[in-house]
């Protein structure tokens, strides 16, 4: 079976993969227009690379890999310039969560039980999910990119660091700060 090689059929690409690629992009960048552009760019870039397709992966995997690289380019662009300023600001804010001298929780930010996390009520869960989505969008672009690549794509840490130009030490700081912010945001908006 493994000797079977995959072939490309661009005439069927849109019908077969456009929706899948669109969803893949939208959950990672949360911008419908940009996601549409990326899907289009992916197909057009793929056409230029058709000759280099070796048939080792499926069409879908191959197209997804092209799209993934385009998404990483977006992450990089977003996390340079203005986004860095907002990331720094958010980093300072995060220090407000803990006491400067001993690292203890500040009383106003200490974790409290969030009822919907413990209950199975579907309505509460739905509300909690929409709060989670809003809070994810509030994260600085670079943090969001790191968080998503790690938690959704389960990408190796080394790859994320290389692709987004962050050091290993910074990677762990971002993972930590992103989650502390996310949890605090959920708590704040839930109560």
């Amino acid at each position: 079976m493994t000797t079977e090689t995959n072939v490309l059929n661009p005439h069927k690409w849109v019908a077969a993969y456009a929706d899948y690629l669109y969803m893949y992009a939208i959950v990672r960048i949360n911008d419908e227009d940009l996601a549409k552009d990326l899907v289009q760019e992916t197909f057009l870039a793929a056409l230029e690379k058709v000759n280099r397709f070796e048939g080792k992966s499926t069409e879908r995997t191959w197209l997804t890999a092209i799209l993934k690289n385009k998404i990483i380019d977006v992450y990089r662009k977003k996390s340079s310039g203005l986004a860095i300023a907002s990331a720094n600001r958010a980093a300072q804010e995060q220090d407000e969560f803990f006491e400067e001298d001993n690292g203890h929780w500040k009383a106003e930010y200490a974790p409290h039980p969030i009822a919907a996390m413990d209950e199975q009520d579907p309505l509460l869960k739905k509300e909690l999910n929409s709060i989670l989505q809003k809070c994810l969008q509030k994260l600085p672009a670079l943090w969001n990119a790191v968080f998503i690549m790690k938690h959704i794509d389960d990408a190796p840490t080394e790859n994320i660091c290389t692709e987004l130009h962050v050091t290993q030490a910074n990677f762990w700081v971002i993972i930590h700060r992103a989650k502390v912010n996310l949890r605090a945001c959920i708590q704040k908006n839930w109560n």
């Binding site: 005439h11 690409w13 849109v14 456009a18 899907v39 289009q40 197909f43 057009l44």
Partner: peptide, 9 residues
């Protein structure tokens, strides 16, 4: 989109 692909092909 498919029209663009056909055109490019």
């Amino acid at each position: 989109l498919q029209a663009r692909i056909e055109e490019a092909l």
